[in-house]
């Protein structure tokens, strides 16, 4: 079993962080993992994406061109990548930020108003975590202990007070129906 995630949005939305969280969750769940960011000047506020692979086998290419799971947090990324999702794959779309819907019938699209949900729940800036929670749920990686360990690993010690809020955001995502 191999999951190939492509996460995309603007710099500053926590795209790389969400990718890292998924990678650590995979690692602690006993998978082979890789994480590859887009890098360069676009990191400073422009578009940003990262590829994450979780697999039962050693990973060849860390670069994902046709994801099985796509997460998008802005319209340009949605337009750019929605066509690249493998048939049978899933797309996780922040519907607060992305205009429009996909007419693809061979993939499953989740429209999650993650940014709106984050703002309503006092979790500003954690839409990425809500989306990550939903993705983990949908691929069946739901062991709370694993996820919490991953989150702890990803949050730097000086931001340890944010752990609880992050866990809340993750659960919101996991419990989201739609």
């Amino acid at each position: 079993m191999t999951n190939e995630f492509l996460l995309a949005g603007f710099g500053g939305q926590g795209i790389l962080f969400a990718g890292k969280l998924i990678a650590y969750a995979g690692l602690y769940a006993g998978k082979e993992v890789s994480w590859l960011p887009s890098y360069g000047p676009e990191m400073r506020g422009g578009t940003c994406n990262c590829s994450v692979t979780l697999s039962d086998l050693p990973i060849g290419s860390p670069l994902i061109l046709n994801p099985t799971e796509l997460m998008v947090m802005n319209t340009p990324s949605f337009d750019k990548f929605i066509g690249s999702v493998k048939a049978g794959g899933m797309a996780f779309i922040d519907s607060t930020l992305v205009e429009g819907t996909s007419d693809r019938t061979d993939i499953k699209c989740f429209y999650i108003p993650a940014t709106g949900m984050a703002n309503e729940n006092g979790l500003k800036g954690m839409a990425n975590i809500i989306l990550a929670g939903k993705m983990l749920k949908e691929i069946g990686l739901t062991d709370e202990a694993v996820i919490e360990k991953a989150l702890k690993k990803c949050i730097p010690p000086k931001k340890a007070d944010k752990l609880e809020a992050n866990m809340k955001a993750l659960r919101l995502g996991m419990d989201f129906n739609g």
């Binding site: 890292k20 990678a23 690692l27 082979e32 890789s34 994480w35 590859l36 890098y39 860390p62 670069l63």
Partner: peptide
């Protein structure tokens, strides 16, 4: 190369 330098693995 840039791919190996930038990617994360265990």
């Amino acid at each position: 190369d840039g791919l190996l330098g930038q990617m994360m693995e265990p």
